[in-house]
């Protein structure tokens, strides 16, 4: 059973008179344990697709399935619970709660899930070290660089051990070395825990790690290639 299945999904943004096709009859299947890159020029529809899969958008038509569950049409509460327990997010624009420290941000999802404190703490410390933020655990976002904040967001997305990670430009703001480290971490989680990854990016370094690249243009899928991962 595929981890993610989109069937003929359409989503149109309306701004007054103007209509923009965010998703134009998109169909996509990602197998369990898949590692997929969405690649498109700016405005191609990457973010829209990730948000639709994550239940953050209402779609106009089509179906979205996560494993055996159809999620378009679920209520707000059900979608929230789904996101909380199954999906790890790295958002494109805004990720961290400003009043919480790096560690507390990483633990936030787990805390809402109800993971016991010591377990939470152990996991957040471990992952923060893996993303290269050891020593910065008690900093608040305002006192960190864009790249550091990005890594905290990634750490949060994977700390709760979701079955699906949706990452929107996770390597933006990162230097090559850190970006590679991060991707290696993703790959490791992907192989070790069978976590499914869907990563939106136009970063060539990222695409190198993917086993499959889906290219989009103007809200449509224009190319879908399997490749040997680096």
């Amino acid at each position: 059973m595929p981890a993610v299945r989109c069937v003929d999904v359409c989503k149109t943004y309306r701004q007054g008179e103007l209509e923009v096709k965010g998703l134009d009859h998109v169909s996509l299947e990602v197998g369990e344990g898949g590692f997929v890159c969405l690649s498109a020029p700016s405005g191609g529809g990457k973010t829209t697709l990730l948000n639709a899969i994550g239940g953050l958008h209402r779609i106009d038509s089509g179906e979205i399935w996560l494993a055996d569950r159809r999620i378009d049409g679920l209520g707000k509460g059900e979608l929230a619970s789904l996101r909380l327990h199954q999906i790890g997010f790295v958002f494109q624009a805004y990720n961290l709660i400003p009043v919480l420290t790096a560690r507390e941000n990483v633990e936030f999802v787990m805390e809402v899930q109800g993971v016991p404190p010591d377990q939470r703490r152990a996991r957040s410390m471990e992952i923060l070290e893996e993303v290269g933020l050891k020593g910065l655990e008690d900093r608040r976002p305002a006192k960190m660089s864009g790249g550091q904040q990005q890594r905290v967001a990634v750490a949060r997305a994977i700390a709760s051990r979701p079955t699906l990670v949706l990452a929107d430009e996770p390597t933006a703001n990162l230097d090559s070395h850190t970006a590679e480290q991060l991707m290696e971490l993703f790959v490791e989680l992907n192989t070790r825990h069978e976590t499914t990854f869907v990563i939106a990016t136009h970063d060539q370094r990222v695409m190198g790690y993917a086993r499959r690249i889906v290219r989009m243009l103007d809200g449509r899928i224009v190319d879908d290639t399997e490749q040997e991962a680096a």
């Binding site: 953050l56 707000k76 929230a80 996101r83 909380l84 327990h85 997010f89 709660i97 809402v112």
Partner: peptide, 16 residues
């Protein structure tokens, strides 16, 4: 607005 939206996106419910 933004961080409340973020919390909702991460899976806090409106009741939260």
């Amino acid at each position: 607005v933004r961080e409340i939206g973020l919390m909702l996106a991460l899976g806090m419910t409106p009741a939260h």
